[in-house]
Simulated assay, not measured.
Amino acid sequence: MNIRYRSAAPRRHSKTLRLLAVTGGGLIAAVGLELFLMPHKLLPGGITGLSALIAHLTEMRLGLFLFLFNLPFILMSRRQISLRFALYTMLGLIGLTAGSLALHHFPAAVSEPLPAAIAGGLCLGLGLGISVRFGGLTAGSEQQSVRLLNGGPPKSAEMPIMLFNVAILLYGGSLFGWDQAMYSIIAYLLAFEALRFSLRDLSLTQAVWITSSKPEEIRRKLQQSLDREVKLVESSGPDGQPGTVFCLASRLEEEQLASIVHGCDKDSTIVINAARNNRIRALFRNKPPG
């Protein structure tokens, strides 16, 4: 299977660099949690915030809950991502967990909650972003990151996510004080923005043209996996002439797309080009339910 880029080709990172970056991203996130947020009882929201809350309540180590609560997401998303991505995801989670356990007994890096919220939120967001960027993921699935970068979670999930985060912050505020809840909100917002900054160019929409002798099979599997419209431009001919399939994908989805196409037809050709036209990019939105 050949993959060609009509625009500037994205950088290909060596396996060693990816391993170091995924692990290092988890460690940076652990620094933000253990040296800044946890000592001041600040909860960044999400699964990480829930892990921190339960760690405070049980007086057990944060790393244990980070691993236990994130592991199910990796296992549930295994069918939607390639084995290689799943392994990098697990490595990122192990880096986050190991870093949290190693830093548990270190004193707080700062004594005031406001700078702790700022530094902790930035470290957490940048660390997770680095881990995602180089192939691992410590806070959800690849598909969730694509949706985050393109405007947020699905509409059906917005209210449960908001209620979940509000419940964590309210409960944390009732336990540790409302000043801590305010600083927790600051940490959460900074972590969110730092994550978006780390991944800002991974959401760039790319036009993908696939030439294969099995275009209909590829179209069907890509449409199921990417959850968006995939166009059959030209069917395969009666004498074995290859057909053409068109779709849009982000750089974060590139490996998943290539794996699906490769599984259908090893001799297919993939041509990737930047999609800058707004009318074309509109196809990148997820299909409406039903």
Rank of each mutant, 00 (worst) to 15 (best):
residue 118 I to M: 12
residue 109 A to R: 02
residue 127 G to E: 01
residue 72 P to L: 08
residue 110 V to R: 01
residue 66 L to E: 02
residue 61 R to T: 09
residue 74 I to Y: 07
residue 141 S to A: 13
residue 87 L to G: 05
residue 118 I to P: 05
residue 145 S to L: 06
residue 80 Q to C: 05
residue 132 V to Y: 12
residue 143 Q to C: 03
residue 77 S to I: 04
residue 77 S to W: 07
residue 58 T to V: 08
residue 103 L to N: 13
residue 117 A to L: 13
residue 111 S to M: 10
residue 66 L to A: 10
residue 94 I to V: 15
residue 71 L to V: 07
residue 70 N to P: 08
residue 85 F to K: 12
residue 147 R to I: 07
residue 120 G to Y: 03
residue 127 G to F: 00
residue 60 M to D: 10
residue 155 K to P: 03
residue 113 P to M: 04
residue 115 P to M: 12
residue 102 A to N: 13
residue 66 L to T: 02
residue 138 T to L: 07
residue 78 R to L: 13
residue 120 G to N: 05
residue 124 L to A: 06
residue 151 G to P: 09
residue 59 E to M: 14
residue 98 A to R: 00
residue 157 A to C: 07
residue 58 T to A: 07
residue 134 F to H: 10
residue 118 I to L: 14
residue 149 L to F: 06
residue 141 S to E: 09
residue 66 L to F: 13
residue 81 I to R: 01
residue 104 H to T: 13
residue 142 E to S: 10
residue 54 I to E: 00
residue 55 A to T: 07
residue 127 G to T: 02
residue 141 S to H: 09
residue 146 V to D: 03
residue 96 L to C: 00
residue 58 T to L: 11
residue 71 L to D: 03
residue 56 H to F: 10
residue 57 L to I: 10
residue 132 V to S: 01
residue 102 A to I: 06
residue 116 A to W: 11
residue 113 P to I: 06
residue 96 L to M: 12
residue 83 L to R: 15
residue 114 L to R: 11
residue 136 G to W: 04
residue 89 T to F: 01
residue 80 Q to P: 03
residue 54 I to Y: 05
residue 125 G to Y: 06
residue 125 G to S: 12
residue 155 K to L: 14
residue 131 S to I: 02
residue 105 H to C: 08
residue 93 L to I: 06
residue 139 A to F: 00
residue 54 I to T: 09
residue 131 S to Y: 00
residue 98 A to K: 02
residue 152 G to I: 09
residue 134 F to L: 09
residue 96 L to Q: 00
residue 156 S to K: 10
residue 57 L to G: 08
residue 112 E to P: 04
residue 156 S to H: 14
residue 149 L to I: 06
residue 147 R to S: 05
residue 123 C to H: 10
residue 67 F to S: 06
residue 103 L to Q: 10
residue 113 P to L: 02
residue 116 A to L: 13
residue 103 L to E: 11
residue 136 G to L: 12
residue 59 E to R: 15
residue 148 L to E: 06
residue 158 E to I: 14
residue 89 T to P: 05
residue 54 I to W: 08
residue 159 M to A: 14
residue 60 M to S: 12
residue 58 T to F: 07
residue 151 G to I: 15
residue 58 T to Y: 04
residue 76 M to D: 08
residue 138 T to P: 06
residue 136 G to H: 08
residue 110 V to E: 01
residue 114 L to D: 07
residue 68 L to C: 14
residue 152 G to L: 08
residue 65 F to T: 00
residue 111 S to F: 11
residue 158 E to T: 14
residue 132 V to N: 03
residue 123 C to S: 13
residue 79 R to K: 15
residue 130 I to L: 15
residue 83 L to P: 01
residue 109 A to T: 13
residue 97 T to G: 12
residue 112 E to Q: 14
residue 79 R to E: 11
residue 158 E to V: 11
residue 126 L to K: 02
residue 117 A to I: 13
residue 132 V to E: 03
residue 73 F to V: 11
residue 81 I to P: 00
residue 68 L to Y: 01
residue 137 L to W: 00
residue 67 F to R: 04
residue 56 H to C: 10
residue 142 E to T: 09
residue 147 R to F: 09
residue 151 G to A: 11
residue 61 R to S: 14
